[in-house]
Design a protein around this nucleic acid. Structure first.
Lengths: 120, 120
DNA sequence: ATATTGACCTTGAGTAGGTCCATGTCATTA
DNA sequence: TAATGACATGGACCTACTCAAGGTCAATAT
């Protein structure tokens, strides 16, 4: 598939996908005869994984390391697991931030609604 | 209180707090006789609000707009509420991303654990 | 009394992670 | 055959910090 489709299906922008290729995150992307990138299903699965990790704040350097390790094969499994466990902790932190912010914001919104509708 | 304390209590770094002042997000910060910033309880409440909004991805420009509106007084309530409601939607998106990523990651971690401990 | 901390100050450069834009190529459609 | 639209590249620009260099000042240690 071409970059527009890969973008639509991964949730990343075409620019971001090109950028990921440039920095070596996504390696060995094929090209069709006219020079356009040709993404495989395998590429797309990686792009989706990247999108999930990045949208939840894993640093690009670590995403890159993870992809690198996966390319190296089996022996890197432990290190990959450790990277994911580290990220798992970030998710917990974010959940707390999200809940805190939701509480604050819902309270404020409700307050504004009360004040806006009041007759004073 | 001084900047170190404001940083500790708000969850922002001292550098970030100075930056927020520079860009006009936090206005009218007092100074003690030796030129050091002197934050009030009011400043701290704003800093905490900024931290919550930023850590959940509200763009600085909008945080700034919100603070600006609040300074302008009552008549801006509706616009402030709208800004918060917009951010409320972002929180929902993030919750989905978080859940998706957690599912993926927990699955992978478990898989790695199985493979690492298997005898093959 | 003086010297050394340590926390603060300012200014300006550097960083992460994209995003946008100008310009160019190519296959397809009018 | 011309124009359209999706792609390509290279490089500038952007957001939101973050860090480093060099300086001031109050408080502590000698």
């Amino acid at each position: 598939m071409k970059i527009a489709e890969a973008a639509a299906k991964s949730g990343l922008s075409a620019d971001t996908i090109r950028y990921y290729e440039r920095i070596g995150l996504l390696a060995n992307v094929g090209r069709s005869s006219d020079g356009h990138r040709a993404f495989t299903g395998h590429d797309l699965r990686w792009l989706r994984m990247f999108e999930r990790l990045r949208s939840t704040g894993m640093p690009l350097a670590q995403v890159k390391r993870y992809a690198q390790l996966a390319r190296e094969g089996q022996h890197s499994m432990e290190e990959r697991r450790i990277l994911l466990e580290e990220h798992r902790k970030r998710l917990d932190v974010q959940q707390v931030q999200l809940d805190d912010c939701r509480t604050l914001i819902d309270e404020k919104i409700e307050n504004y609604l009360r004040l806006e509708s009041s007759a004073f």
